[in-house]
Structure formats: structure tokens, C-alpha cells
Design a protein around this nucleic acid. Structure first.
Lengths: 212, 212, 212, 212
DNA sequence: CATGAATGAGCCTTCATTCAT
DNA sequence: TATGAATGAAGGCTCATTCAT
């Protein structure tokens, strides 16, 4: 068996990933309740019954989709946390471009939309997403900011709010993309958004002479 | 029963508004598909059939909920647009506190969550929301910023992105509230967020001596 | 409302009973698993959805069917227990005819078939049926027999087995009716069976001179 | 793997019997509809697909199970029929113990339960079971009884009902075992039941002096 | 022969919508 | 107007059956 050409014949080991991938697309488009298992299955190229060989219920598929999207992001958070030392400006410039790129090329935006939309129906998913991602990321950024404040580098102020300010435009831009681009909204360039945003935050919005 | 007594019964003229209000709460909590008309009716204090005296379909109720939430916001946008003249700093400081207050005391956050979550299923709602609110607000702010740039008050840069930067923390904070506070997240004080954010944007994050 | 003519217009109060009655017929014919809710609903003259206005699940309907069949039988058992005094022969002659008549004119046979067939899948139903009917009936009969034995009226022997001997032909005859008459078996006359059975039990099968 | 060693593998010739045996257990426990082919296959130690190498459909397996249970019983009936001559008491005493022993040590009780429970869905099985077993057994006993009546040994009366009376306690006891023992019912000793029953039938229930 | 992944028809259950009162 | 019992289409899930290996 499996002589030498593992080419054609679908390999069952890939099925769950294929299904999760298809489910991500459908859930992101329709939300949990309006997504039909038929659609997910068809998009995954399998029959409806096949989904149940790998997942217990539709909710299970949903959880797998969200869960799968958490791991890579935790890596981002880790990277940010690890980059602590050095001037904050360098950290932000380096990290923001990286994060923007990842968000751009990843279905993460769709997952974010799902989590926001279904948080009320899946509290445990909201909790996991918060505890493992949102809270971690805000915390890591806040720590870095506090360190910079301690070094006299950054102005006084609530570090958690600073962290929120830092990440917010990226999140809004990606939600804007997911929500309004399909109905004709002018896209935002995530990289450009983050670049300009970091510059603005660091140096202020106003011209030198215009400071109040 | 209740023969003829002119008790303090609710006037029937309020019914549609009561239903929309109840529907807002249920839709915000569950999303469109998972919201049951029974729940909406019960919360509105009427029978299921009564809902159909005022609305054609469940989608109609949803549209009414979103539509109703647009009007007051358009007013905000108008206010911002009308405040054009004068230094940008004054405009932002004045408007941001106002907007933060409104968002704090209004179910608008829930509606935003709904719109994000159901955009895929109700493109025309996403379109209305975008065309009448998002686009208008971004446009008004961008115009104000461009004016300030023309006056040499604001640094060069993409005015639409500047507008995004301005509003993003508020939106993220409110989505954070809607999504993660029910599962234990530490709340953000919207007013504080906007106050600190405007300060940071105007003057920069860094201490005087720390500019790169 | 309900002015004076409660004639036409189906009264909702009767619905549950109508559904249980229809369900009894379908379950008795097909068993639990093979019975389709569509069939039950149609036979009850309602839509499939209407069943769910009165019962949570199909299992609930099943439980209601069995539960409803228990009550009247408990009455039989009570009657038997109350008839204790007097010669056993009188008791048996009186009760057996009564019981045979009830079993003849009641869907109890079908329910018995259901209970036997589904006991493995619904242990709690088997338990209720046993505890409230089988055990009670056997116990009541055994008590009466023991009393007769104490009076020197009945031969020594296991009173519970005597009780089983007494009732068994009726049960087998009714299961025979439910199981084999539809495929052409010659019916047993339940009354005749019980009459002859009691006579035989009391006086023996053999002719006077043939006793061994 | 498993190179060429002629281990003590089960011979394939036994497979069908093993499957039927496993199926008997599962069908007896769950009934036809609720029995899953997966369970049957697993209990038989083969794959689900293997079942289809030997049987066309699930119904086929069921038919095989019931069919297999008929043969040995027909033998019993034949034995009874062959034992005609001599005093009826001897016949009954001899046969009843034999039958009780067979029923005790055989899954026949489970099959009986299955036949009763599924008769409505498998009329042809009910018919076969009736024609080859029930009818034959009743007939053979009736013939023996009629012979005894002709010899002046047995009282007048419906011979078919006498036959029913003879066998009923055994059947009820075995159904009682299958149905209620799993939920805690006190067991009947089949041998004791038949012994006491035959004595009672032959000599009557009442003490010598108590005859009415 | 044997396997077990895959299929898809079928059924229970939900819920938006209707309508007799 | 208002009610809520009734409807029936839709969809999640199961499982007998098939078939490529």
C-alpha cells in the first residue's frame, strides 16, 4: 500500500484541516447560525456526513475554527513580549509592520468578526479568545509601555489604554475590510495605516509650531 | 377581564418602538439568526402575533433596529462636520468627549456588534450603515483634517487614515465592552480612553527629550 | 368566548390526549424507533410541529403513552388487593373475568408489547412498569394466595409462582393477539382462556380417576 | 505485519455464525431499529464492511438471527409430538423440565422478545415464527391433550387453550427475565416455575377438602 | 477476503409566519 | 388590535450501505 506516489487519492489526515478551512470561510461570511453544514461540507469537497467523522457537532467545528486561529496569534503576542528591551519606538515600528502583515495575509480578520458576532452565543469562546489573545496582547504591550515610562521615555498615562490606542486602528481597519469592503467601501491599506499610526503616536499629529 | 378601566396601560402608539427596543436587546445579545421572535415579543411584553401587526418579517424588525440606530449618529456626524472652523485640537477635544458620552450611554455598541456580525447576511444593511454613518463620519473628519493640514496645523499624511486613527480606540473599546466584558474582561472607561487618546495624538506619545 | 356551542373548532385541551392516543397506535405497531413523528401527527390529525407544543421530544411522547397506560391498571391491581377476603376460588373467578374484559377492550396489550420490545432502550420505563404494575400485581396476588394457604385452602407452594401461573395465560394470549393475529394466527378468546384456566387451576386438569 | 504465521486465527468459516451470534445479543438488547451495525460488527470482532460480505442488508442479519433460533425449537416441538403415548402426566413432567432447561440456557428468550417487539415491522418473520413454532407447538400439545381426553384421562375443555395454559408461565417468566430483571426484578427460577405449574395443573390448586 | 472512510437519504426538532377567534 | 395555537419548510445529525484500497 501507499507504494510511492502519495499523490492522488485524498489523504484522510488532511480532512479535518480542509473542513476547518472551509468552515472558516463559511462562518466568517454567514456567522454561526446562518452557516449551513451542507455549505461547509460542499466547500470542503466532502459530504455532509463526512464532517461528522471528524467533529461531533456544528459547534465543535466552530470551536475548532476559532481555536485554530488562536495559536498563530499567540505567537505574535509572544514575539511582542520578547522584544521588550530597547527604545519603544523601535519596538513599535518593528512589531507593527509585522503584525499588520500577518493580519493582512491571514483569515484572522474573519475570525475576529466571528468572535465579535457570536460572543453572546459562545461565551466560552469569547473567554478563550480574551484570555489567550486579547488580554495577553494588551498585557504584553502595557508591560513594554510601562518599562518605557520607567525609563522616562514615554509620557505618564494609563498603559493599558496606550496599548489599546496602539492596536485599535489595525483592528478597526480589518473589521472595516470584513464588514464594509464587500459593499463597496474604500479599502484601507493595513500596512500604511499602521505606519502612519505609529508615526503619529510617537511624534504627535500636530506640526511643530502648532502645539497647544 | 379588565373591563373598561382606563388604567395606566401603555399606549398602543408606542408598540413599534417598544418592539424595536426589545429586538435591539435580543439581536445584540444573540445575533440575528439566533434571536427568536418569541424572545423579542416576550421582552416587548406583547404576543408573537402582535409583532406581525407592525412588521412584515423578522428581517424587517432587524432593519428597523439598525435603521433607528443610524439617525442619532448621523446627528453626531453632522455636529462634527459643523464644527469645522477653529484649531483642530479644540474640535477634537470637544467632539471626542461628546461622542464618547453618547456611545457610553447608548445601545449603539450593541448595534455595531450586530452590524459587524450580520454584514455578510444583510449586505444592504452593511451598505446603509457604511454609506450613512461610516463613510460620512470618516469623510467629515477627513475634511476637517485636510482643512487643518491646509492651514499648516496638521502634519502631512493620509487624512482618511488620520480619521480612522482618531475614532478607532473608541470603537475597539466599545466592541471590547460588548464582546469581552460579559466574560470577565476589565472594562475600559470610554471617556478616559478618548481623553488620553486625543492628548496622545495631538502631542505624541514620547517625552520631549525622547523624540527620535 | 366559548359562547354556547362548544361543537366544532378543535379544543386544545384535548390535543395531548389525541396525540397520545395516536402515538399509542403507532408505537404499538412499529415500536419506538421505527415510529415516525409524521405518522403520529398525521394520525392525530395535527401537524408535526403541533406535537412539539405539548411534548418536548419523541421520547416524551413515548413516556406519556406508557405512563397513561399505567394508571388504569393500577386500579385493577388495587381492586384485586381489596378483594382479599373469602374463598380464593370466588376471588379468582370474579377477578379473572374482570381483568380479561379490561385487557380485551383496552390497548393495554399494545402497550405491553411496546414495553417488552423497548425495555432495553428505556430502562426507566421498564422500571416504572415493573414497580407500579408487575411487582404490585404479583405481590397482591401472592398475598391473597398466602392468606388462602394460611386458611388451609390452598396447597403449599411458592405463592409468587402461583401468582405467575394465574396471570400468565392472559398475558400470553394478549401478546399472541398483538404479535401473531395480524399474520393469520387463530385468535384466543381471552374470557374463555381465563375461565378455563381458573377452572383448571382450581380443580386440576385430570379426571377424577386419573390422578397419579 | 502478521507475516505468514499460521496462528490460531479464527477460521473464516465461522464468521457468519459469529456475526449472527453478535447480532442476536445486540438485537435482543436494543431491538432492530436501535441496533447499530457498528455495534454488531464490533461485537463480532469484524469490520462493518465484513458484515456485508455475508449478509445483504441489516434486515437479512435480523432474519438470520430469528431463523437460526427457530431450528432448535422445532426439534423440541418434534420431541413433544413424538412422545405422545402414555399418560399425559408423564409426558408433561418429562417435557416441561426439558423445555425449561433449554429456555434457561439459550438466548431464545431474547429472540422471543425481539419477535414480539418487531412483529409489526417484520410480518414475514412473525409469520415464520408463528407457523413453524407457535402454531406447531400449540398444535402438538393440543393433539396430545386430545388423545388424553379421548382416553378419558383429561377433562373436557378446549385443547388449544389447555396447551396455552401449559406453556404460558414459562413464556411469561422468560419475558419477565428479559424485560424486568435488568431493572431489578426478582428472578423466577424457570425450572421451579414449570415444576410447580405442572403439579398444579395436574392436581389442582386447592387442598383436597377445599374443592368447591 | 477485509477494512473503514465516505456517502446521502431520512428523521427529529426548531421557529418564522399565519389565522381563527 | 391582540392572541397564541397551528403550520411546515429547513437543517442538524445518524447510520445503513458502498467501494477504493
Amino acid at each position: 500500500m501507499d507504494a510511492g506516489a502519495p499523490k492522488f487519492r485524498r489523504r484522510k489526515a488532511d480532512r479535518p484541516a480542509e473542513i476547518v478551512s472551509a468552515a472558516l470561510a463559511v462562518f466568517a461570511e454567514k456567522g454561526f447560525a446562518a452557516a449551513k453544514l451542507d455549505d461547509i461540507a460542499r466547500r470542503a469537497g466532502v459530504s455532509k456526513g463526512a464532517v461528522y467523522l471528524y467533529f461531533e457537532t456544528k459547534e465543535d467545528v466552530f470551536r475548532a475554527v476559532v481555536g485554530q486561529a488562536i495559536a498563530p496569534n499567540v505567537a505574535i503576542v509572544k514575539a511582542m513580549a520578547a522584544a521588550h528591551p530597547g527604545p519603544l519606538a523601535d519596538l513599535l515600528r518593528g512589531v507593527s509592520a509585522h503584525v499588520a502583515r500577518i493580519v493582512s495575509m491571514t483569515p484572522l480578520g474573519g475570525v475576529l468578526k466571528m468572535v465579535v458576532g457570536e460572543a453572546g452565543n459562545f461565551p466560552e469562546i469569547a473567554r478563550v479568545w480574551h484570555d489567550e489573545l486579547v488580554s495577553q496582547a494588551l498585557g504584553a504591550m502595557a508591560v513594554a509601555i510601562e518599562a518605557a515610562q520607567a525609563r522616562g521615555e514615554v509620557k505618564p498615562g494609563d498603559s493599558r489604554i496606550y496599548a489599546l490606542q496602539l492596536i485599535a486602528p489595525l483592528l478597526v481597519a480589518v473589521l472595516h475590510r470584513e464588514t464594509f469592503e464587500p459593499v463597496g467601501a474604500t479599502p484601507f491599506d493595513l500596512q500604511a495605516v499602521m505606519a502612519q499610526h505609529i508615526d503619529t503616536l510617537l511624534c504627535g499629529l500636530l506640526m511643530e509650531g502648532a502645539r497647544t
